[in-house]
Design a protein around this nucleic acid. Structure first.
Ligand SMILES: [Zn+2]
Ligand SMILES: [Zn+2]
Ligand SMILES: [Zn+2]
Ligand SMILES: [Zn+2]
Lengths: 186, 186
DNA sequence: GTCCTCCATGTGATCTTATAACGTTTCAAA
DNA sequence: TTTGAAACGTTATAAGATCACATGGAGGAC
């Protein structure tokens, strides 16, 4: 519905971010999905908002508000913080982007249109971020909430660790025993 | 160990924070547990660090670094941000406190000594915070991580919602049909 | 004991992240 | 066309966090 082509089902469940077969279409699809979504909900998908989402979609990692602001300035938009923050607020409110609390940064939603409880995997080496689904209310946290009478409305789930690509790099560096263990860290 | 009495087992699993039978002992116990823990690990539990933990234990909610700093100043400690941040860093590194990413604030650990993956329930009305245990790697997130080859090292799990006490208040307000629905929101 | 080193503390300055406040513009409904 | 709500742009400022450097005390080497 969000676009002409039916979204592949596993795009919904598969964590997205560490691998991307077709990045160009990933941006285009994301933008048109957002456009459709806004149209059908009576939301104004203005140029700034569109540009911010485009900027986010072009990366597979979270961007700080001020990085986004820099790019907005380069594109001729306003150059003061509220410009970026307001657009980001719109995107987050409407499920088109997420804030990564751990990084104080923002990322395009990888499952737009779905009503989802996002979870993120953040690589501490390359800063890439992948979005997965979570169901925290069904585990230990949910049990604790029920036990105490706490009403969960929203959850932040962020895992920090090492992504497969960095993991491979580390492994192959270890194999180059002694060669460049420290300098390749940059 | 932390005191003469063996720590009750359910203190480990029970979420702590929304109710507290004996707050005074809660502070004292927390401090002596920390003291013992530092002693046995060769860590220096200095006056600033002790005071910061005491400040945190006195609250059942998360405090921002600058609030803590204000109190430190009142107590005659240094008054510049690094004083608070360094003490907080020590406490967090050693499992005596946690940072609540959602609030950019800090809270005393409710399960010190245990090797745990904390999860938090944050009341958006009264800002109280309860700590529970989580096992995010065992749910959907863990499955996603295994599927993609992501190595989880640490998790942030924070649920935002309404605590039982605020929930009761809201309910009883609703019963006062029409009286003060909007002003009590404060 | 003395010296020396490490670690913690205190301070000023600076940087990053986020919001308040206010006037102007845009847009769509009436 | 009028009009009111929402969005935009800008200035200023708040809130959160770190850098850099000097001082001071607890231990270990001697
Ligand atoms: Zn999402
Ligand atoms: Zn990586
Ligand atoms: Zn804890
Ligand atoms: Zn509450």
């Amino acid at each position: 519905m969000t676009s002409g082509s039916p979204m592949k089902l596993d795009a919904v469940t598969k964590p997205v971010g560490f691998a991307c077969d077709d990045h160009a279409s990933c941006v285009v699809d994301g933008l048109s999905a957002a456009e459709a979504r806004c149209a059908s909900n009576g939301l104004r998908f203005t140029p700034v908002r569109r540009k911010v989402l485009e900027i986010l979609l072009q990366e597979h990692r979270a961007l700080g508000a001020y990085v986004i602001l820099d790019r907005l300035r380069d594109e001729g938009f306003g150059s003061q913080p509220p410009v970026a923050y307001r657009a980001l607020d719109f995107l987050v409110r409407n499920g088109l982007a997420h804030k990564i609390e751990r990084l104080n940064a923002f990322i395009a939603c990888a499952h737009p249109g779905e009503n989802h409880a996002p979870a993120f995997m953040i690589c501490r080496l390359c800063d890439s971020v992948a979005e997965a689904q979570s169901a925290p209310a069904q585990g230990a946290l949910g049990a604790a909430a029920r036990a105490t009478g706490f009403k969960i409305e929203r959850t932040v789930v962020e895992a920090e660790g090492v992504c497969p690509s960095c993991s491979d790099t580390a492994a192959s560096e270890a194999t180059d025993s002694g060669s460049a263990t420290s300098e390749a860290r940059g």
